[in-house]
């Protein structure tokens, strides 16, 4: 009896969470001018409208560029930081780990304001570079957490074997460590991309005037009207931020299976 009640409750919670999302996706295919039920028929007109909307496309390109650059920088830094933290006995390791992970723990808006104030203080204006730097700070902890976990599972003696066979430390990294680390690197990059792609709080504070990302663009559009275009844009966002990681995970598993590397436990 009690369990049934809990089950019903759980279903209701999920409905509450996901129904709006489903509605957005559904309405993005609505032929009607008004984003409301009943639907007037199936249509891709709002996607076409998006495609023809210069502001949206500009925001989209900005977001993609920002996401890609953020993923590349964050992943590179994350791998290097993880190597330092896991493989070398550096003084103050715990403190350093805490500092690097902190952006996850500090409320986003606090981080956003802090960075903005800091930039004002040192006299650097807002720019795309600063926006990118902010995104990197936000996404770096996720990369480090994922990569570190995997790196701990890579046995040191495998690297030592490579060294003993004549590979220099650098060659060992590229021939042994990095390939074994690849699933985590890919996962970290995907995390960084998706987190950057749908970040809004930090972006609102940091973006230079006239530059919009997809989330800030949606935010701006919502102030004027609730156009069905926004539903379409939402659908595109969902496909990108949910679909991409799923695709990446599947790909990583494929690769891992092919090369005979077992999944980290």
């Amino acid at each position: 009896m009690g369990w049934n009640l809990i089950r019903v409750y759980a279903v209701l919670v999920y409905l509450f969470m996901f129904l709006p999302v489903a509605v957005v996706v559904l309405l993005s295919f609505n032929a009607s001018q008004f984003g409301a039920f009943p639907m007037a028929g199936f249509s891709l007109r709002w996607f076409v409208a998006l495609w023809e909307n210069d502001a949206v496309m500009r925001a989209f390109r900005t977001s993609l560029a920002l996401g890609f650059l953020c993923a590349i920088i964050s992943t590179t830094l994350g791998v290097l930081a993880s190597l330092a933290l896991v493989r070398y006995r550096i003084p103050g390791r715990n403190l350093l780990t805490t500092v690097l992970i902190a952006p996850i723990l500090v409320p986003e808006v606090v981080m956003a304001v802090a960075l903005l104030l800091f930039l004002n203080f040192v006299g650097i204006g807002r720019s795309f570079i600063m926006l990118l730097a902010g995104h990197v700070i936000f996404t770096l902890p996720f990369v480090i957490l994922v990569v570190q976990a995997r790196l701990v599972g890579i046995r040191r003696d495998v690297e030592e074997a490579a060294l003993s066979l004549g590979a220099s430390p650098r060659q060992t990294f590229f021939a042994v460590t990095l390939p074994l680390l690849m699933p985590a690197v890919a996962a970290g990059a995907l995390f960084a991309f998706t987190i950057s792609f749908d970040n809004i709080t930090g972006t609102l504070f940091w973006k230079p005037g006239g530059v919009e990302t997809v989330p800030t663009q949606i935010f701006a559009m919502l102030r004027h009207s609730i156009s069905p275009e926004i539903n379409a844009l939402g659908t595109v966002m969902i496909v990108l931020t949910v679909g991409l990681p799923l695709l990446g995970a599947a790909l990583a598993r494929r690769l891992a299976m092919k090369s005979g590397v077992s999944e980290p436990r």
Binding site: R155, E160, S259
Partner: peptide
């Protein structure tokens, strides 16, 4: 170590899991 020209064998084999046997043996 990488310039000492040594053969090293570990308790846990320490083979490269992402390489075939031939690539493992040919690594050095």
């Amino acid at each position: 170590i990488h310039k000492r020209n040594l053969g090293l064998v570990f308790q846990n084999y320490a083979l490269f899991p992402h390489k075939t046997v031939a690539d493992n043996v040919g690594f050095g």
